[in-house]
Each structure stands twice: as C-alpha cells, then as structure tokens.
C-alpha cells in the first residue's frame, strides 16, 4: 500500500476520489473466472459426441478455444470491467454517451495494457505473470508458446513493469494514470472538449501535488511517471496491430467488445 502522507499534509481529494472508484479486484477476478469457466464448459459439452443435438444448436459459434482465444476472451472481459470503471467516474458521467464512446475508443488498449502492467507490479515476480483470473503463468512458458511479435511485446511489458517497480509506482498514482489516459485532451471532435481538457489538467495537478506531498525526497517523480505514458502508448499500439493481424487471420473470437473496439478505431 502507498505510504502515508507526512503529518500535516493532505492527499489531494481528487486522488482519494479516484481510489474510491477503483474496482474490487477480487470481484472482477471472480466474475471473469466464472465467465471463462462457463466458456470452457460450453466447449467441452460441445465436443462430447453424446451432445450431437447441442452441437447443432451451437452451430453458429463453432469456435475452438485456443490459448490465444482464451486470452482474447480474458481481454474482452477486462474491457467490460474497464467500461464499468469509467462509468463510475464522476467526470465521465458528466459527458454524453457520444463523447464517452470517443474517449474509450481512443484509449481502450492503453487501459488494457495499464491494467496488465499494474497487476504485474502488484505481483512483483520477474519470472511469472499474473492473469486477471488470478492464475500465475511462468514467463518462460509464455515466451516459449508466443511467436516473435508477441514475445517482443511481453518483454517490452516486463521492461515497463521493471521501470515502474524501480520507483514503486503506488496504487493512487496508478489510479491517476488511468484518468490521464481516459481523459486524453488530444481526442478530436468531442462535443465537450473543454470538460475533457479541464479534467486532464485537474488530474495532472492532483498527481503532481500527490507526488510532492508523499514523496518529497523525489521532486522529479511526477515527470518520471509521465515519461512512462509514451512507452505504454507504443506497447498498446503494437498490441492493437497484433490483434488486428490475428483478427484478419480468423484467430480472434468474434462478436465481442474487443473486436468492436478494434473496428471502431480502424474505421
């Protein structure tokens, strides 16, 4: 947990509000685990010869669940929880649905990557990664199964985790980063652009104030944190390209939020 603010100094109210908005990790974990278990069960029942009739009924969704497919379902479900999180944010609520969609279309992959990175930060092990379902996967086994592109992204992710571990990014700072990513003032054609710009500025100020208050011995901490955002953006862009490529080769499960987001940005 993050260190306490020195006596007499206050954690900015906005930062506390962001932490309040954070989702219950165990609840998200159990929801997603249950969803994936259901998918696997469905698949098993379909592959049993006794269930011929059921096979026919499910004929419209003849997806074979590969490890990659399972990961896509996991990312898809994580996206659902990201949308829920955004909806719980007071500043997000003030926007019309059209603007909300534009913001999410712009940043969904960055939020997914940050979610992954933040989980690895908490996990704190260099030789394994922690999935949103709570499963721990050996890094070596993951890299052995992945192709060149995916391996490169996993390694880039590990480097980013390592950077952030070096100065122990805390949960409050992570919560601020999520908001900086969501309220990106560079998103064009918003109905309420001034609101998004104002929220972005407020989050920046709150994060700066927070780092100076809680980590006064590291005056450059705020800049160091912000420097990681372009790296995160590069990684998320790579992940999108990779997903797009996999989608075109028919390896991404269809009819889900992940695909919808992928399409929205490309059209």
């Amino acid at each position: 947990s993050p260190p306490l603010a020195p006596p007499g100094l206050m954690v900015p109210a906005l930062v506390l509000e962001f932490v309040r908005c954070e989702q219950d990790e165990l609840l998200v974990q159990s929801k997603i685990s249950a969803h994936l278990a259901h998918l696997k069960q469905e698949q098993n029942s379909r592959s049993t010869p006794d269930n011929q009739e059921q096979n026919t009924r499910h004929a419209a969704k003849p997806e074979r669940l590969t490890t990659f497919g399972l990961m896509c379902h996991m990312a898809d479900q994580t996206l659902f929880s990201i949308v829920e999180w955004a909806r719980s944010c007071i500043f997000f609520k003030e926007l019309k649905v059209g603007d909300q969609m534009k913001l999410l279309h712009n940043c969904w992959s960055e939020l997914l990557v940050l979610d992954y990175i933040a989980r690895q930060l908490q996990h704190g092990k260099e030789d394994s990664v922690l999935l949103i379902t709570g499963q721990e996967v050996e890094l070596a086994s993951l890299l052995a199964q992945a192709g060149v592109t995916l391996s490169g992204m996993i390694q880039m992710g590990q480097e980013l985790v390592h950077h952030l571990q070096e100065f122990q990014l805390d949960r409050r700072e992570t919560a601020c980063l999520k908001h900086l990513i969501l309220f990106n003032p560079d998103v064009k054609l918003l109905e309420n652009q001034p609101h998004v710009e104002s929220v972005y500025e407020q989050v920046n100020e709150a994060l700066l104030e927070y780092t100076l208050c809680v980590y006064p011995q590291f005056p450059d901490r705020f800049n160091q944190i912000l420097l990681r955002l372009p790296e995160l953006r590069v990684l998320s862009a790579q992940a999108e390209d990779y997903l797009c490529y996999k989608h075109l080769s028919g390896e991404v499960p269809s009819n889900n939020l992940l695909i919808e987001m992928l399409h929205a940005k490309r059209t």
Binding site: F80, V83, E84, R87, V97, Q100, M101, L104, H105, N256, L257, E260, M261, H263, A264, T267
Partner: peptide, 18 residues
C-alpha cells in the same frame, strides 16, 4: 459504423434512465 459500436453504446446507455 453505428452498428459496429452497438455493444459499447448499450453498455454506456444502460441504466441511464433509472
């Protein structure tokens, strides 16, 4: 394009009138 965004729109719209 609108059809592409149907799920996200639904997720953002739901419960709004409650």
């Amino acid at each position: 394009k609108k059809k592409d965004n149907a799920l996200l729109r639904y997720l953002l719209d739901k419960d709004d009138n409650v």
